[in-house]
């Protein structure tokens, strides 16, 4: 219960919302999907500023960037044009399994990021996708996702800050996300999001006979792997540089899995042993790359 809550505000413009938040100082919070706030026991908050009436739920795909406004829901992401875009695949995959359907219908990308939990899914995808987060108070500033997730985002946001949009650079590559839970929409025991670009020599979706062999064992020009469900916040895998530009045969994938395993130290989770979650993180990373490659080739993959 929000014991001290006395009022709701329903601004219709960003300016109004930001002003209302600023005015109330630490006693007001933005309210998006409410899936986390409604059941929280925040004893400080007195005013909730409903930000779902600001018209900030669009998802725009431009030639140089993808803009996801803060109130786009997980369900909205899965139904948007992102679903057909290989490079945004990781976020669509993540949104598809971010809890049960009733939650996905309500939870917003802004809320998911602001209130990042150890098992949260969209933030892992956003980390792999090098998102830039647009934060508005009186003025706008943009913070890279890697920086934002150095500590818990709620700490990086000062009272009055509103995440208004999440911007993804157009990569021309492909991405994918996978998680392991006990059921499909369970909180992640481990998750992995990868973003890849494939060597220029191999063009997206084309299959000439000469390149066919190459296409079966393509080479990456970019690889970024983010892992979730293992630590309090999503983490970025490091030391993967050597894998870029090398033929992606079985050994390549096993090396990737080993590299991942060797660098994660999962925090305790009663539901499964840490050693298991570490092993699976490697498998998920490997398979997410496979899935992204398939996507890049234009082959249908079950999300």
């Amino acid at each position: 219960m929000l014991d001290q809550l006395t009022d709701f505000l329903y601004p219709t413009t960003v300016e109004e919302a930001v002003e209302a938040l600023a005015k109330a100082g630490g006693k007001a919070l933005p309210l998006a999907g409410g899936t986390s706030l409604a059941l929280s026991r925040n004893a400080r908050v007195e005013v909730l500023v409903d930000i779902t009436r600001l018209g900030l739920d669009r998802i725009d795909v431009d030639s140089d960037r993808i803009e996801i406004q803060c109130c786009a829901t997980a369900h909205g992401i899965t139904r948007s044009s992102l679903a057909d875009l290989p490079e945004a695949g990781a976020l669509v995959d993540a949104a598809q399994v971010s809890g049960p359907s009733g939650v996905r219908a309500a939870m917003t990308m802004g809320g998911s990021l602001a209130q990042c939990y150890p098992w949260s899914d969209p933030p892992v995808a956003l980390l792999a996708l090098e998102a830039k987060v647009e934060i508005t108070r009186k003025t706008k500033r943009t913070v890279g996702i890697t920086k934002l997730l150095e500590q818990h985002p709620s700490k990086a946001l000062t009272p009055g800050d509103l995440i208004t949009a999440i911007v993804l650079p157009r990569s021309g590559g492909a991405s994918a996300f996978l998680k392991q839970g006990l059921t499909v929409t369970d909180d992640a025991l481990a998750s992995a999001a990868v973003s890849i670009r494939i060597d220029q020599g191999q063009e997206h979706g084309k299959k000439s006979t000469r390149r066919k062999k190459k296409a079966e064992a393509p080479q990456l020009s970019h690889l970024r792997v983010a892992l979730g469900g293992l630590r309090p916040l999503p983490i970025l895998a490091t030391g993967l540089e050597d894998l870029v530009g090398r033929p992606m045969d079985d050994a390549w994938y096993e090396t990737l899995a080993d590299l991942i395993r060797s660098q994660v130290r999962p925090t305790e989770d009663a539901r499964a042993p840490s050693a298991y979650r570490r092993t699976v993180a490697g498998v998920l990373a490997k398979r997410a790359v496979q899935k992204a490659v398939e996507r890049w080739k234009g082959e249908p993959t079950p999300v």
Partner: peptide, 20 residues
């Protein structure tokens, strides 16, 4: 589950105040 403006929502995850 209820429909809010036609969309499904879990009413246990919504504050009534959001329904203005």
């Amino acid at each position: 589950t209820v429909l809010v403006d036609g969309k499904r929502q879990n009413s246990c995850l919504l504050l009534a105040g959001q329904m203005q």
